[in-house]
């Protein structure tokens, strides 16, 4: 019973939060609702006894949304509303309803036909964390390593692009000070 209550509570909260993200024109509302929604999603992992993934969800997405906040801080005055060009409302609502129905169909179809077999069924004597590790280093080894390499490439590219003048201090540069003083 508790699981059902928790599931419906967090399902409602998550959908409400992401609805706010999409509809609001206030950058601060959108970002905060995004953070809240991402953290509420971790509740589903905890309900499914996937503790490790739940904790990772919280850690990863707080960091990720924090970076988004930094962008929001740089690009917007977050205390004002952003003026947006709004298209036809019916098209937006219709497309999102269609997309939602498609996602439900995609995930419900194999369940209805009971065509899902767990290749690596979970066993009771090893923990959830170890299971994630085993699947990650057997079935999903190549995607996992590829993702790691891609992240490394992105990081190196970021450092190369941003780090050209990293050793020069902006406040100590002589010509900047002269410009300000003159």
């Amino acid at each position: 019973m508790f699981e059902a209550i928790a599931f419906y509570l967090f399902a409602f909260l998550t959908i409400a939060m992401f609805y706010i993200v999409v509809t609001t024109s206030q950058a601060l509302y959108a970002l905060s609702a995004l953070a809240a929604g991402m953290i509420f999603i971790s509740a589903f992992f905890f309900i499914l006894n996937a503790d490790f993934l739940g904790a990772i969800q919280i850690i990863v997405y707080t960091g990720a949304v924090m970076a988004l906040y930094a962008f929001g801080m740089m690009f917007f005055d977050t205390t004002r509303e952003v003026k947006e060009k709004k298209g036809n409302k019916f098209i937006i609502v219709g497309m999102s309803a269609l997309a939602a129905a498609l996602v439900v169909a995609i995930f419900a179809a194999p369940m209805l036909s009971t065509n899902i077999v767990a290749l690596y069924p979970s066993s009771a004597d090893i923990g959830n964390t170890q299971e994630v590790g085993m699947v990650l280093f057997t079935k999903y080894l190549i995607p996992f390593e590829l993702a790691a390499v891609m992240l490394l490439v992105a990081m190196v590219a970021g450092i190369v692009l941003a780090g050209k003048k990293m050793d020069n201090s902006i406040t100590l540069e002589d010509d900047t000070n002269e410009k300000v003083l003159s």
Binding site: I39, G63, T79, N128
Partner: peptide
């Protein structure tokens, strides 16, 4: 007593920094 105690503690404590940040951004 969840299996991932240390991760959970560090993760949720980290969420606490949203407080100062949201307060600062909303303050005008």
């Amino acid at each position: 007593d969840i299996n991932v105690g240390i991760l959970y503690v560090l993760g949720v404590m980290a969420v606490g920094l949203f407080g100062p940040m949201l307060g600062g951004m909303a303050s005008a």
